[in-house]
């Protein structure tokens, strides 16, 4: 088939222009969070002070547009609720560093906001990276004390100790002792988590990239996971729910973020909640709109060409 009329460089230039321009303006966008996002936030909100979360970080710079936003939103929520967490990775050797950098960023944000820094060892620990995701996740599901047993961290006195001596891990004897397992991922670790960890009846949730949403929806529909946030929309959903709560009326009696998944309301989470989701969501809008326009033009050209051929024939 003959190639379309618009040259590639024009399409590319249009994309660059359309994606860059919204970054310079603050554009408020109405939003209705998706059901899986609401369930995700509802489960996070139900955590109590002192609960312990196993937080998988299985993403790298390539998907940071989505995954970093997920990670930040989750960390902000956990830290504000004083929920302890254990970070670990099994998908990519870069992942632990990426996660540690985000924790440092959120901590810096807390310090700037006159909140207390979330302390390593007493409030969170890192169990590091484990090669071979399926075996690693299975090992954690079967016997977390053996799987993480050899990992060490500096305690508050600077002495290296096994992470199980940390206050974070005090009550952890098996994976079922975690109050929640979350995996921020851009890879197949979702399948292994469902296969091995969900089978132990531990509450499980995912933060996945946009392209992974359809397959993650399967686990959500079958109730194997409590909820999930997907892609940039997921980041925006989280930031909106943290900032404005769910079903909370403002001074004019209007509800900013409404959901019929919640019978009552969930109050906003005080502190800095808005971030890259709110910043990039207008860009996503424009990019999707541009895609629809390009599909329309392409189809119009095809129909015109067919009509011309018929006319000539």
């Amino acid at each position: 088939m003959k190639k379309g009329g618009i040259p590639k460089f024009v399409i590319y230039a249009l994309l660059i222009a359309c994606c860059s321009i919204p970054l310079f303006f603050k554009i408020p966008i109405p939003n209705k969070p998706s059901d899986p996002s609401v369930d995700f936030y509802k489960t996070l909100s139900a955590l109590k002070e002192g609960d312990v979360v196993l937080l998988g970080s299985d993403w790298t710079g390539s998907t940071r547009g989505e995954s970093k936003g997920h990670m930040k939103a989750i960390l902000r929520t956990l830290m504000r609720k004083n929920v302890k967490f254990v970070i670990w990775s099994s998908a990519d050797p870069q992942s632990p560093r990426a996660a540690l950098d985000v924790i440092a960023e959120v901590n810096a944000e807390r310090v700037a906001n006159k909140e207390e820094k979330f302390q390593r060892w007493t409030q969170w620990v890192s169990a590091g990276f484990y090669p071979n995701a399926d075996v690693a996740i299975n090992a954690v599901a079967q016997d977390v004390r053996t799987a993480f047993g050899s990992r060490r961290e500096n305690d508050t006195n600077g002495v290296q100790q096994q992470i199980f001596k940390s206050p974070v891990m005090q009550k952890i004897k098996s994976v079922t002792d975690f109050d929640l397992v979350i995996d921020v991922t851009a890879s197949k670790t979702t399948d292994f988590h469902v296969q091995f960890i969900s089978a132990k009846n531990v509450p499980l949730m995912f933060a996945v990239t946009g392209v992974m949403v359809p397959e993650t929806q399967v686990f959500y529909n079958s109730n194997q996971i409590k909820g999930f946030i997907g892609g940039l929309k997921g980041v925006f959903d989280m930031e909106q729910m943290m900032e404005k709560g769910i079903n909370v009326k403002d001074a004019n009696g209007k509800i900013a973020v409404a959901s019929d998944k919640i019978s009552g309301e969930i109050a906003p989470l005080p502190g800095v909640s808005v971030g890259q989701g709110t910043k990039y969501y207008p860009t996503l809008h424009v990019a999707l709109l541009l895609m629809i326009i390009m599909i329309g033009i392409g189809n119009y050209e095809m129909i015109s060409a067919r009509k011309r051929q018929k006319g000539n024939g």
Binding site: K3, G4, I6, K8, I11, Y12, L15, A287, L290, M291, M294, I295, I297, G298, N299, M302
Partner: peptide, 9 residues
């Protein structure tokens, strides 16, 4: 975007 224009018909 290029594929959407050229192939999604």
């Amino acid at each position: 975007l290029s594929a959407a224009y050229r192939a999604f018909r």
